[in-house]
Design a protein around this nucleic acid. Structure first.
Length: 277
DNA sequence: AGGTCTGTTACTGA
DNA sequence: ATCAGTAACAGACC
């Protein structure tokens, strides 16, 4: 269930790999969403991992010769660290990276919507999937004013705008519902109908929800776990997502479909602007 | 058996 | 050219 907070939690958990030297990379499933570049297995054994960082929902592992392993977790991908002696390969373990220390890093992804890329760092950041990304959701230069400028001509609903990685990157379907509830803005509101003040509120809610989710270790729906296998907690703090059978202060939560994705919201709290006065 | 699910993008048509 | 909307990818789960 990897959106920005889960990817950030994963990246933080991988920090213990920094400084290690790669010994081998084994590919068990060559074709994920895309085919894993074959030359990844030719990584020289004297290469060190010097930095691990996140861009939107992408994980970048930077090596001492300026090459970079990029991993996207897709819908169901997970990165786990194991002690070499205790590791036993499981179903859907597609790529295993072994270091000179006791660690193994394992990429597991049942649905195979994730992918792995490998190239010089300067080439990776020129790939279209990176270049097309909009401003980071937690970038401090994302202000209400900037958001307003980006969306005030858009006819699509604000829920859809939050999911559009070209406008803001990092938010996924679950946090979009939670953010809009926090901002008391209806997911059905068109981008062009949000005033500057709404955009300011929305930016606050984006920061608020994503930051709290990161501090809770992300959310564990179904099977998301951090690199050491522990569960995130933030799903316990969901106000609307997956709660269409319950109420908030006696007000019903509704589940609707928008562009084929489920949206959860409370129509009595997230009232459409035209109906307010 | 059939519907649903966290993400992304190629494609279509306006 | 830009914008909006749909289909497709694969497996697990209910």
């Amino acid at each position: 269930m990897p959106e920005l907070p889960e990817v950030e939690t994963t990246v933080r958990g991988l920090k213990s790999l920094i400084g290690s030297t790669i010994i081998s990379i084994k590919i068990h499933t060559p074709k994920l969403r895309f085919i894993i570049p074959k030359n990844i297995i030719s990584i020289k054994s004297n290469l060190k991992i010097i930095e691990i960082k996140r861009r939107s929902k992408y994980i970048l592992i930077i090596l001492s010769n300026k090459q970079c392993i990029l991993i996207h977790l897709g819908m169901s991908g997970r990165l786990r660290l194991f002690n070499k002696k205790k590791f036993q390969k499981e179903k859907h373990d597609h790529l295993i990276l072994s270091t000179n220390k006791e660690h193994l890093m394992v990429f597991n992804d049942p649905r195979r919507f994730g992918f792995v890329d490998f190239d010089l760092y300067k080439n990776i950041i020129q790939k279209r999937y990176i270049l097309n990304l909009g401003i980071e959701a937690l970038d401090l230069s994302l202000t209400g004013k900037l958001l307003f400028k980006k969306i005030n001509k858009k006819i699509v609903p604000i829920k859809q705008i939050l999911l559009d990685q070209r406008i803001i990157s990092g938010i996924g379907n679950i946090y979009a519902s939670e953010i809009l509830f926090n901002a008391k803005i209806s997911p059905l509101e068109r981008g062009m109908d949000l005033k500057l003040d709404h955009c300011k509120t929305l930016v606050c809610s984006i920061r608020n929800i994503l930051t709290k989710a990161i501090n809770s270790g992300g959310s564990s729906l179904k099977d998301y776990v951090s690199v050491d296998g522990t569960l995130g907690n933030f799903q316990k703090k969901f106000k609307v997502y997956g709660k269409d059978k319950s109420t908030i202060n006696g007000k019903k939560i509704k589940k609707i479909l928008q562009y084929g994705r489920s949206t959860y919201f409370c129509p009595d709290i997230q009232i459409k602007f035209k109906k307010r006065y």
